[in-house]
């Protein structure tokens, strides 16, 4: 059956969702076709999550949902109903960089910084699963994201430095 597209109104369908973003829970009325990335950026107003490809390949839009690293360009906002979302804005506490962020700066692991949020969120999720001890593990952890500026060496160094320091803390405690 032919649909009369000229009468189509793509904005008529909206739904309420309840999500916890960086620890704060709130209800939002969202268009059903709104991507999670656009929701986080434009409706919640957290612009640190970036869109690099919008087809799930570059990883710039990675956020953590219920402890899993997820590409927010491949999900609809409505699918996040009831979940807990962490974005790059939640990593530093009261303006103090997290150890991983500090390691990124110290090791020149970022240049233009556009892809950085996605790398950080992928790595935060990965490091919660366990330490990264070797260069090949570090590269594996990075391989879901694309960076065009750095050649990844600084990120590999940052991860190993960070993982070693966590290990060090554990061993000393």
């Amino acid at each position: 059956m032919a649909v009369d597209e000229s009468r189509a109104d793509p904005v008529e369908d909206k739904s309420w969702i309840s999500v916890t973003i960086n620890g704060s829970k709130q209800d939002y009325l969202v268009e059903q076709r709104l991507s999670l990335a656009d929701f986080i950026r434009n409706q919640v107003g957290l612009k640190g999550t970036h869109l690099g490809c919008e087809h799930g390949s570059c990883g710039a839009c990675t956020v953590i949902i219920d402890d899993r690293a997820v590409r927010s360009c491949l999900m609809f906002a409505v699918q996040s109903d009831g979940s807990s979302i962490e974005t790059v804005e939640g990593l530093a506490i009261d303006g103090v960089l997290s150890p991983l962020q500090e390691s990124f700066q110290a090791n020149h692991a970022l240049q233009c910084g556009f892809c950085t949020s996605g790398f950080l969120m992928s790595l935060v999720a990965r490091l919660r699963e366990g330490p990264i001890d070797t260069e090949s593990e570090a590269r594996e952890a990075l391989s879901g994201n694309i960076c065009r500026c750095t050649g990844y060496s600084g990120m590999v160094a940052a991860i190993l430095e960070q993982s070693n320091s966590i290990q060090g803390i554990k061993e000393n405690s």
Binding site: R41, G48, H50, T87, L110
Partner: peptide
């Protein structure tokens, strides 16, 4: 000096 804002999602890219 650029890094802290870029690492915390506070960069000012055109679409931001």
């Amino acid at each position: 000096r650029e890094d802290p804002r870029l690492l915390t999602g506070q960069g000012k890219f055109i679409d931001d």
